[in-house]
C-alpha cells in the first residue's frame, strides 16, 4: 500500500492538492481565497495529467533528428489537454475576479457572509 503510494507520489500529491483547493473554494468565506482555491484545484488536475503524460526516458514529440519511431516520444495529447485546461481556468478566474471587484465596489468587503447579510438588508429596504 505505502509502496504503491510512493510509486504514484506525484498523483497522490495532485489529489491532495485538489482536495485542498476544493475545500477552500467550497468553505472559505473570503472571495479572493476562494479564487485561489479554485486555481489550486484546477492546477492539481493539470499536475495529475502532466505526470501521467510523462514517460521517463522518452523525448518530447518534436522530430529534430532522424528518429521517426513513435516509441521514442511521449504522447503530445496530455500536454495539449493541459494547455486547453489552462486557457479555461484563466478565463474562469478572470470572470470571478471581475465579479469580486463588482461586489467589493458595492459592499466594501470580500467576506461572502457579510455581503449576503448586506444584500438581505438591501432587499428589505427596497420593499
Amino acid at each position: 500500500m505505502l509502496l504503491a503510494l510512493w510509486d504514484h507520489r506525484i498523483q497522490a500529491a495532485a489529489v491532495l492538492l485538489f482536495a485542498v483547493g476544493f475545500v477552500t473554494l467550497l468553505l472559505h468565506r473570503n472571495l479572493l481565497k476562494k479564487i485561489i482555491g479554485l486555481n489550486i484545484m484546477d492546477t492539481a488536475a493539470y499536475l495529475f495529467l502532466t505526470s501521467v503524460g510523462y514517460i521517463a526516458g522518452r523525448k518530447p514529440p518534436i522530430i529534430t533528428g532522424g528518429d521517426r519511431d513513435p516509441a521514442s516520444y511521449v504522447n503530445p495529447l496530455p500536454a495539449g489537454l493541459v494547455l486547453t485546461g489552462i486557457v479555461v481556468s484563466v478565463s474562469v478566474t478572470a470572470l470571478m475576479l471581475a465579479l469580486t471587484i463588482r461586489l467589493y465596489r458595492r459592499y466594501h468587503t470580500l467576506d461572502l457572509d457579510q455581503i449576503y447579510q448586506m444584500a438581505l438588508g438591501e432587499q428589505e429596504e427596497g420593499k
Binding site: 485538489f18 483547493g21 476544493f22 473554494l25 467550497l26 472571495l31 476562494k34 479554485l38 484545484m41 484546477d42 488536475a45 474562469v92 470572470l95 470571478m96 465579479l99 469580486t100 463588482r102 461586489l103 458595492r106 459592499y107 461572502l112 455581503i115 449576503y116 448586506m118 444584500a119 438591501e122 432587499q123
Partner: peptide
C-alpha cells in the same frame, strides 16, 4: 442588482466545484 451579482458568484462557485470534479 446586488442580489443578482451575489447569485452569480454563488452560481459560479458551485459550477466550478462541479467542473473541477
Amino acid at each position: 442588482l446586488g442580489r443578482t451579482t451575489l447569485a452569480s458568484v454563488r452560481y459560479m462557485i458551485f459550477s466550478l466545484l462541479g467542473s473541477g470534479l
